[in-house]
Amino acid sequence: MAFSGMRAIARFLAPGLLLVLGSCQGSSAPNAHDELVIGTEGLYPPWNFTRPDGSLAGFEPDYLRVLCARIHRRCRMVAMDWDGMVGALLTGKIDVIADAVQITPERSGVLAFGRPYALTTGVIATLRGSPLAALPDGGARLDFDHRGPALDAKIAHLRNGLAGKVIGVELSGAFDTFLNQSLGSAVSIRYYRTMGERDLDLLNGRIDATLEDESYLHPLLATRDGAALVLAGPRMIGGTMGRGEALAFRPKDNALRAQFNDAIGATLADGTVRRLGLQWFRMDASPGAAR
C-alpha cells in the first residue's frame, strides 16, 4: 500500500511535477477498483502531521491503514489545507476526508459522515500564570445538546470569565463557529491559518487563551514548550462544536460509506481504536470509552 503523502512525491519530482500532476488529473473519476484518495491536513498532530521527510504520520494515517486493509482497498493519503478540503471532496479530487472532522449540524448538510471513531471534547488552554487558569467549572462536562438553565449558567460563567480576553482559533474550525455564536460579543477572536501559528502566539502571550480539542492539547502539554500551558474551565461538546470525529464522504457514495462503517465497527469492538488512541492521544478517545 503506497501510503506516502503527496508532498513527499512532489518534493522529489519537483522538476517534472507538471507532468506527474497532469496525470493525476486524469484519474479524478474514481471507480471501485481504483485506489482511494484520502484527504487530510497533515498539520493537526497527533491526528495527522507531516514528518520532516514529507511523509504523513499520526492516528489517522495509522488507523486508515487498518481500515483500508479491512475493506481490501488500496488507499493513498494526500495533504491539503482544511479550507479547500470539502471542495476537493465534492469535486472528486479526493474520495474520503480523514482529518478529525467533527460531526456538526452545519457540515451534515453537505457531507455524509461515517460512524464516529472518536469522541473528544473541547477545552480552554492558557498560560500557567494567566488569571484564566482559575476559570470556574474546571473539568466539568458541558453538553451543548442538552439545553437548560444549568447549561446557561455555566455558559454565563464562561462568558464572564473570558470577557475582554483575546482567544485564538483556527479559521473555519468547529470552535470558530461556537465562539462566534456563544461568546462572540464578549471576547475578541483572532484567526489562524494553522495550529502551529496559533500555538506560537499562545506560548508567547499574544493571545490569552485558545479553545481546542483535548486530543490535541494533551500531547502538546506533555512537551517541553507546552509545559507552560494549563487546561482551564469546562470540557465542552455538542451543539455547533459537534459530537464525535468521523470520516466524511460524498453523500452519494453510500456503498463506500457502508463498507467503512462495518470496518470501523469491527475496529471499535476489537480494541484497535482504543490502542491507537492510547498510543497517539495518551487516552482512549473511542466513542464508547467511559470518561
Binding site: V86, L171, S172, D176, Y191
Partner: peptide
C-alpha cells in the same frame, strides 16, 4: 475578506 469567507464559504 478571509474572515467573511470562513463563515460564508
Amino acid at each position: 475578506a478571509q474572515q467573511v469567507i470562513a463563515h460564508s464559504y
